Computed example of a mutant assay.
Amino acid sequence: MKAARLEHLGAALKVENIGEPQLRAGGAIVRILAARVASYTDQVISGELGFTTPTPCTLGPTAIGVIEAIADDVFGLSAGQTVFCDAYIGSRTIGVTSDRILIGWTGLGPDAGRTQSIWRDGSFAEKALWPAECLTPIPDDLGLTPEALTYLGYSAIAYGGLIRGGLHSGQAVIVNGATGSIGASAVLLALAMGAAKIVAVGRDGEMLDQLRKLAPKRIAPVSLDAAPEVYTEELRRVAGGADLLLDVLGKVTTAAPTLAGIHALRRGGTAVFVGGVHADIPLPYSKIMLEELTIRGSFMYPKHAPSEIINMAQAGILDLSPIRPRTFALDDIDNAIAQAKDLRGFEYAVLVP
C-alpha cells in the first residue's frame, strides 16, 4: 500500500509502497477515505514546532475511513462501518497523563514514547492501524462526503472548548480568532448550540463578512486591524458583557487580543484558552476575583464530542454547508501541504488516498 513516510524531522516527506498494517489487540484496520492536512504540516515536518514525532513513521492526524478488520477484544464496532479517526490517546490509568500522544503527529509528555511504540503511524496512507477507542461511527445516511467529514477534526476541538466553557442557549460568546479553521467552526457550532450573540473576532475582513452573513442578527464581527486600545473598547461595546470567551487565536506573539476578550466578559463569565498564543497572559488579578471570572484551558476534546457533532448535523441543527474542502491525491501530498498553509476559515486541505 502507499503511505507518506517521514524518515526524520527535516527530511522530505516521501510517498512509498510499504507493507499493510498488522492488526493488534485493541485496534482496527481502517481503509482511509480522507485525511485532513493541517495548515502547519510543513512546520511539523521541518521540526520547527519541536514536535516529538516518532520517526520513521507515516505522518497524519485525524481522518475518515472504513473499518476493514477489528481485534478480538474490540466490541461495538464492525467491519464496513465508516468512522472518524481521532488521534488523541493516552493511558486511562487514573492520574497518568504523561504518556498522551497525537497519533502520527507528536508526543504530549515525557512518557509518550511508550504509547507511540504501540500506535506509531498516522493517516496519510491507504490504510492505518487505529485504536478502537479513538473511532467514532458515522451513520451511512448522514449525507456528507468523507472530505467534508474531515472537518470534524476542527469542529471537535472547537466544540470541546465550547462545552468546557459551559455555553448554553441564549448566551453571548466571543470567538477570538474566528477567521481561522477552528474559529470558523466554533461560530457554526455556537449557532447550532443556540447562542443568542456571537462576536466573531479576527483580522480577515472578508472572512468576518462571510461569518456575519450566516446569521446577521446573531453574529457581530470585530476586526483586530486596529490599535489594541481601539479593538479592546470596540469588543467591549459590541459584546455587551459576554458569557464566554473562546480564544482560538493561532501563533500570535502578543497577549493583547486575549486580554481584550477577557475584559469584555460579564461578571461570572468564563474564558477558555484553546489556541496557540505564544505570549504570557498578564491576567488582571483583581478583575478576576471581583468579577468572579473563570479562566481555563481546553486541549482537544472529550471522546463523546465527535458523536454529538454528528448527531447535530444529522438532525439538521448544525449547518455544515459553508465548508469547502480542497482535495488532493496522496501522490500530490507536497502540493496539499503547500496549499494548506494559505487556507483558513471554511477552506481546508484533504488527502484522498
Rank of each mutant, 00 (worst) to 15 (best):
D204H: 13
T41S: 07
S286R: 11
A190W: 01
V66S: 14
K341Q: 14
V230D: 00
A71W: 14
K341G: 01
P284D: 00
I103S: 03
A125I: 01
M207E: 15
I262P: 05
G166I: 07
E233I: 01
N17K: 14
I337F: 00
D99Y: 04
H8A: 04
S298G: 02
S123V: 04
P110D: 14
D243M: 07
E7F: 04
T41Y: 08
P54T: 07
I118T: 03
D73H: 12
Y40M: 15
D331W: 09
P353C: 10
D331C: 12
L77P: 08
P131S: 14
L330A: 09
A220R: 07
G297C: 14
G76S: 02
M312V: 08
E68L: 11
F273P: 09
L246E: 01
N335L: 01
S46A: 12
F328W: 03
R324E: 05
A192F: 07
G202I: 00
G205T: 14
P137D: 12
D73L: 15
A220D: 06
W130P: 15
G153D: 07
P131V: 12
A260E: 00
G276P: 00
M207A: 15
D141R: 10
G107F: 05
G180W: 00
V175S: 02
A239R: 01
L129S: 14
P56N: 08
L33K: 15
V222Q: 06
V83N: 04
E292G: 06
E48F: 07
D247K: 10
K2I: 05
I323R: 02
A79C: 13
K303H: 14
F273V: 15
P131G: 03
D72V: 13
L191Q: 13
P137Q: 04
I89N: 00
A87R: 02
H168W: 08
V272F: 00
T53F: 15
Q22D: 06
A148W: 00
M300W: 06
A25G: 06
G65S: 12
E48Q: 15
A158Y: 04
G65D: 07
D319Y: 02
F346M: 04
I94W: 03
A148P: 03
L318F: 08
A38V: 10
A4F: 13
Y231S: 11
A79G: 09
K14A: 04
S39G: 07
A255I: 06
A271E: 02
T82K: 01
S155C: 08
L13N: 02
P216D: 11
E233C: 12
I317C: 02
K213R: 10
A279G: 05
G50N: 13
H168N: 10
A329I: 09
E68R: 04
A3D: 06
P21V: 10
A190R: 02
